[in-house]
């Protein structure tokens, strides 16, 4: 078994009286899609925020490629090659796709112009088009603001942006929540293509069909703890739901062996 890209052990996070994480474990390997599932309040978003550096856990360890990371911040996470696509708030709606792709990481011109903050629009456009093409995102009008595009297209741009900058892991928070059938399928295909580049993709989703369609592994969170790990090929929706709701708590045999 190869070393995990990211390995979290015993994460605890308490907000006042609420214990969002009670010793949660989680792992991501390169080139896989791992679905993080759990009922509302299971601690999924807290876990993702912890792993992307937004929240500092009260206790527990996070190892990235085997090395323990202390006090992960969002900037550190980004530098380590970890990107997060949030359910909303991902894009600047009035900017065009390329501007969104490079938002916060604009390429500047060389020499004096760059030091004065002049944008290298041509380079950004060229690199942006290459990136979108690699990931199979079709955009008819590169000059339109993303607000004029469909939900699927916007999600495609948001995922591409994460894929463009992530070298290791992408967290996707409900990427298909607001999408129709065809667009959902496109985003799932995009997720597979991102995975095939060797990146570890973490998919947070409530949609069991999506989880079963795209994930390689499933980790189930319940009441702030990981209660089960499954190989998607060897699991049914019933098993997952049972684990989510606590109907079964045993980590069934080979499924927990990864």
């Amino acid at each position: 078994m190869t070393e995990a890209l990211l390995e979290a052990k015993g994460l605890v996070k308490q907000y006042g009286q609420i214990r969002a994480l009670r010793g949660a474990d989680f792992s991501v390997y390169s080139g896989e899609v791992v679905a993080l599932v759990g009922d509302n309040g299971a601690g999924k978003s807290t876990l993702v925020k912890t792993l992307s550096g937004v929240i500092t856990p009260d206790s527990g360890t996070i190892k990235i490629e085997g090395a323990a990371v202390q006090a992960l911040t969002p900037i550190m996470a980004r530098q380590l090659g970890i990107e997060t696509v949030y359910q909303d708030l991902a894009l600047a709606p009035t900017l065009d796709p390329v501007a969104n792709l490079f938002l916060g990481r604009e390429l500047l011109r060389k020499g004096l112009g760059g030091r004065l903050g002049f944008l290298d629009k041509r380079a950004m456009r060229m690199q942006g088009e290459v990136k979108f093409r690699e990931l199979g995102i079709r955009i008819q009008d590169m000059a339109s603001p993303v607000s004029s595009m469909s939900g699927g297209q916007r999600q495609g741009i948001a995922v591409s942006r994460a894929a463009a900058w992530a070298s290791k892991i992408i967290f996707l928070d409900e990427p298909t929540a607001a999408l129709g059938v065809v667009q959902t399928r496109s985003v799932l295909d995009l997720i597979r293509r991102v995975r095939d580049t060797g990146i570890g993709v973490v998919l947070i989703s409530h949609s069991m069909p999506d989880v079963l369609a795209v994930s390689d592994r499933i980790e189930v969170l319940r009441l702030g703890r990981r209660v089960a790990r499954f190989k998607t090929s060897k699991v049914t929706t019933e098993d997952i739901v049972a684990a989510m709701t606590g109907a079964t708590v045993q980590m069934s045999g080979d499924n927990d062996e990864l």
């Binding site: 708030l89 991902a90 600047a92 009035t94 916060g104 990481r105």
Partner: peptide, 15 residues
């Protein structure tokens, strides 16, 4: 422009 479009998106993009 980005901040006006979405301050949250800009913040999360590192602005």
């Amino acid at each position: 422009l980005a901040i006006g479009a979405s301050a949250a998106a800009a913040e999360r993009s590192g602005v």
